[in-house]
Amino acid sequence: MNYFKALFTIVKKDVLMEMRTKEVVNASLVFAILLVIVFSFIMEPGSEVEKKIAGGIFWMAVTFSGILGLNKTMMSELEGGNFEALMLAPVDKSAIFFGKVISNMLVLILLEIILIPLFLIFYSINIVSHPLMIAVLFLATYGYALVGTLFSMISVRTNSREIMLPLLLLPIMIPILIAAILSTNIFISGSDIIYSYNWIKLTAVFDIIFTAVIFGIFSAIIEE
């Protein structure tokens, strides 16, 4: 079967299931909104401190609520043995993996789209104050979905999956989180965007390396 057709079939199925159950979006969204609102109470509106840490709050909301979502999406594959059924299908196993990555990425993008106006309301901060921020959002979200999907596939089979996923995922995510937070802060503070280039490059390199490695070894590692 065509690689991209298989990938699209997985994404289409996940979108259909999510539109019907809204389990992943609801679990992630409630947590993210609460986190953004609670942090808005502890800072003086319009203060410099708020501008310095807004990027951190934004990416913290995305990261932690995303973990909830990653666990939920992978649970739907485990229930009823669907993951085994997917592995039996006559398609490249990495197409199934990247289909799941895109599904998870779509949920994270939806989450970010909802969080951006919330930052305007509660912090008077425009997260997308520069067009390059769209590149940061895209690259960091892809990197997060990529590594998150891989580790959720591993952790979902353990008894303590809620603890195991952040323990495995967050250390690997450190470079991408630092790059995303610092480049977001550069755009928010109105600093020269030239300082963000290296962070954006770092995120892109992270994405390329992990995509290549996972594409190359996924079929082998997923089998016994």
Partner: peptide, 28 residues
């Protein structure tokens, strides 16, 4: 291969027809 296992290999969040259409698509 067609496999009937101890587990149903179907998604609870999809209808019977949607499940069959999904697996049918994967098998072209």
């Amino acid at each position: 291969f067609g496999v009937i296992s101890h587990q149903p290999f179907v998604y609870g969040g999809l209808s019977a027809m949607e499940n069959l259409k999904f697996y049918g698509s994967l098998y072209n």
